[in-house]
Design a binder for these strands. Structure first.
Length: 295
DNA sequence: GTTGAGCGG
């Protein structure tokens, strides 16, 4: 059909047209699309072939719509940039920033918070609480201080746990109130604190503290040494209650030091006196009192 | 020169 043929000739680009095209670099590829964001506007520059087969540059300007965003999120705009983006101007830098779709996280187990907001608006409050507490993340359930409940120095002195936040934590010094004398149902009292109960709980913790006190550290051990070798080496000085040979958790490679605990401190002292400086497998052993491991 | 693993919250 003549009409179609006519159209065809019209649409086909001529050689001359292509040669004259100032944007033609002689290759088939078009320059990449760029996207520049500055302030609240975005400029997208795109190169493509138009219906005449000519390369055209398309520049599109967008005004970035200001969306209503929670205040706590909006405030992040003022956060100081850091790392590779430390010197970047405001706005995302495509070299270091990937803009993806929204990712929603579900927070489980945060007590006392309504789960309606996904922790979004409350996060500043939580952060503030953390900072203003001025303490570490742990709080003792016995005395409210800055250590784990298990490590509480008063845990044997104090009676039941005071989980009630309204009652202030008992005074560490004057903490003799194990029994409540009033008529109301008595609070739970641990067995070791009950009248007439044996003090097994107490002796347990005493044993723990003693263990720390009666522990020696052995360094400069040959890497091949085994638990059994240590037992043989330190057994003669008294009853050994624990041997810890430090090894790499994953490779099992010995780290060359160990801890040995004795039932009695004198035994540990004897071991130090006897084994310190002792030659063992062409190494001179170092034996000293161990420092408590945590804090 | 070298000071530990584990439990929780």
């Amino acid at each position: 059909m003549p009409a179609v043929k006519d159209m065809d000739t019209k649409v086909k680009p001529s050689w001359a047209d292509q040669m004259d095209d100032p944007m033609d670099d002689g290759f088939d590829t078009l320059p990449a699309t760029t996207e520049v964001i500055s302030g609240d506007s975005k400029v997208i520059t795109e190169y493509k072939l138009n219906e005449n087969g000519k390369k055209v540059k398309v520049i599109r300007y967008y005004k970035i719509e200001k969306r209503r965003v929670p205040q706590s999120i909006a405030r992040r705009k003022n956060w100081k940039k850091f790392g590779m983006s430390g010197e970047d101007p405001p706005g995302p830098n495509p070299a270091t920033t990937i803009i993806s779709e929204d990712i929603f996280m579900q927070f489980v187990g945060n007590l006392g918070n309504d789960d309606q907001n996904n922790g979004m608006d409350g996060e500043d409050d939580a952060l503030k609480k953390l900072q203003s507490s001025g303490k570490g993340m742990v709080q003792c359930r016995h005395c409210g201080m800055d250590h784990w409940s298990l490590k509480c120095p008063y845990k044997d002195k104090l009676g039941s746990l005071s989980l009630n936040k309204d009652t202030p934590p008992p005074e560490p010094s004057g903490a003799g109130t194990q029994m409540d004398e009033k008529g109301k149902p008595a609070k739970y009292v641990p067995p070791n604190m009950r009248e007439g109960g044996n003090k097994r709980g107490e002796t347990m913790t005493n044993a723990r503290n003693k263990d720390e006190a009666n522990t020696i550290r052995v360094t400069n051990l040959p890497e091949e040494i085994q638990d059994q070798d240590l037992k043989d080496l330190f057994g003669p000085f008294g009853r050994v209650t624990r041997i810890f040979l430090a090894k790499d958790k994953y490779t099992g490679q010995s780290k060359g030091f160990a801890f040995v605990s004795y039932e009695h401190r004198e035994e540990a002292a004897k071991a130090i006196g006897s084994v310190h400086g002792y030659g063992y497998a062409n190494l001179i052993l170092n034996v000293e009192w161990a420092k408590p491991s945590n804090n």
